[in-house]
């Protein structure tokens, strides 16, 4: 009986949405009428205008700046690709490689850390989920550099961890700070919620009934994961990977605060081009390169996802 009513309400939903969709595919006059009646563009308009002024505009300007002669500050001085040539011939590829490498390592670590956590939050400790969510969200609201500074105090020679290790275990672990693993630690630490929450959304899209059905059909734990959970939770996991990869790619504070000067990441280069070197065009060109790489990735992933489906469940 339940199946019957499900199917029936689905049918009528189809009927309704069918109408709504058809309402959009109409003649020119009807389309004009629908345009005026549709509140969507009107409501989203202010936001789009704001982002045009505060996001698209600045990025176009950066793109323009990347095409003027090095160390000039004026758009009227003619166009050149000199900055890009400089970037390719100089050793900037090292910073790009570090950024991509560290971002990739961060994503892998986050996958391993967050999957059990997201699984526990959605499927095992459902009742405590809102408290857990609160506890995991709070750090997000504390400035990133304060939290990283907390790691400095924890890892630095004589800090919390080396101090405690020395005091209670009698071992010396004072060389932790200003190393590549420390940077990865910082990246994993700062971007954890950005992997976790999309993953939680994704996993909550896996119906319990389906998992039970799979177990009933004789699936092992591993098969359940491979054949049911992973494919269904994929959209959320993909968003999490994308978010954390992009954010880690453009990160600045982690390598500066926790890495000292062991590694220069690309955002470091961009910042110093704009500030110390006073070479805006080069900074702009580096930004454009980063944007193109990140933007391509974002579009490749986002175009495969149905946001309504992912968020509608939340």
């Amino acid at each position: 009986m339940a199946l019957d009513t499900d199917a029936r309400s689905l049918e009528s939903e189809l009927e309704d949405s069918g109408h709504a969709r058809r309402a959009q595919a109409g003649g020119a006059a009807a389309r004009l009428g629908a345009w005026v009646k549709q509140p969507g563009p009107l409501l989203g308009g202010p936001l789009m205008l704001f982002l045009a002024l505060g996001f698209v505009g600045p990025l176009l300007l950066v793109a323009a700046f990347s095409l003027i002669p090095p160390k000039t500050f004026d758009l009227s001085g003619g166009w050149t690709t000199q900055n890009y040539v400089d970037i390719v011939t100089e050793s900037y590829w090292i910073s790009f490689a570090w950024s991509f490498g560290l971002a990739a390592v961060t994503v892998v670590c986050l996958l391993a850390v967050c999957y059990p956590l997201a699984y526990a939050m959605t499927k095992v400790f459902g009742r405590a989920a809102s408290l857990l969510t609160l506890l995991l969200v709070i750090p997000l609201f504390v400035s990133e550099n304060i939290r990283l500074f907390g790691w400095v105090l924890s890892l630095v020679k004589g800090g919390v961890l080396p101090g405690a290790a020395d005091l209670w275990l009698g071992i010396d672990i004072s060389g932790l700070l200003y190393t590549v693993p420390a940077i990865v630690l910082g990246l994993v630490y700062v971007y954890l919620p950005f992997m976790l929450f999309p993953m939680v959304l994704g996993l909550s899209m896996v119906p319990d009934r389906l998992r039970e059905a799979a177990i009933d059909l004789g699936a092992s734990r591993w098969q359940l994961f491979r054949e049911v959970e992973l494919p269904l939770a994929m959209p959320g996991i993909l968003i999490g990977c994308l978010l954390t990869f992009i954010l880690a790619l453009g990160s600045l504070a982690e390598s500066k605060i926790l890495g000292g000067s062991v590694v220069v990441m690309i955002a470091d280069d961009i910042e110093s081009a704009f500030t110390f070197a006073q070479n805006w065009p080069k900074g702009a060109a580096l930004s454009v390169l980063l944007m193109v790489l990140a933007g391509g990735l974002i579009f490749a992933v986002l175009s495969r996802l149905d946001l309504d489906k992912i968020l509608g469940r939340g």
Binding site: P58, L243, A267, I270, L290, M291
Partner: peptide
């Protein structure tokens, strides 16, 4: 949201 904030900040400074 996906955009590196430091780069966004610099772009806005330029703007």
């Amino acid at each position: 949201i996906f955009f590196p904030q430091a780069v966004l900040g610099l772009a806005l400074l330029l703007w």
